[in-house]
Amino acid sequence: MSHSFNKDFSSSPASHLNEGELIRGLTQKEEWAYRQLIDQWSDKLYRLAYRFLGKKEEAEEIVQEVLQKVVEKIDTFQGDSSLYTWMYRIAVNQSLMRLRTQKGKEFVSLEEHASEFENGIRVREIPDWSKLPEELFAKKELHDFLQQCVDELPEDLKTAYLLKDVEGFSEEEVCTTLELSKPAMRNRVHRARLILREKLERKYVR
């Protein structure tokens, strides 16, 4: 094999190809197109799957399944959405299917959060942990804890949160990928953030 994958995928000459060229290459079963597909998307898909499932091996399997589906079904790709929205939708669905087979997941609710108000006024003093030293926020331990909290989110909140806040999708892209209305999407991301904020506060300042 003449080309080996390295960590700097942006340096790949093929990364300058546009989506239309990539789709044509995939349809014609060109190896450069497979390579481009992997160069451009496998890390992103892996990251998403890993955040859903928390296991390296399972996330790798999801990447392989998604790319296999893309290669097999590229003829049926209608172009109603972008290629990557289509890929992410497959990745989300595959990840959710796996999550549903995992037993013993305990999800959290926002009931406690709702009880923070009386007559619409906060009744509990909120500590401002956002001013904690920056070194703390860079620590792996904190990100591991955050990942654990994300794992415990209800599935619908987790999906919207991962695409919007972690993957940095625009609102339109999240709505297209998950086939959600904007208000529903915003509500899910907001509720996810509230739960995560609460958990970070409990862990680090209470």
Partner: peptide, 9 residues
Amino acid sequence: SYRKTRSLG
């Protein structure tokens, strides 16, 4: 802290 939660993600 809500803003910080978003940025951590």
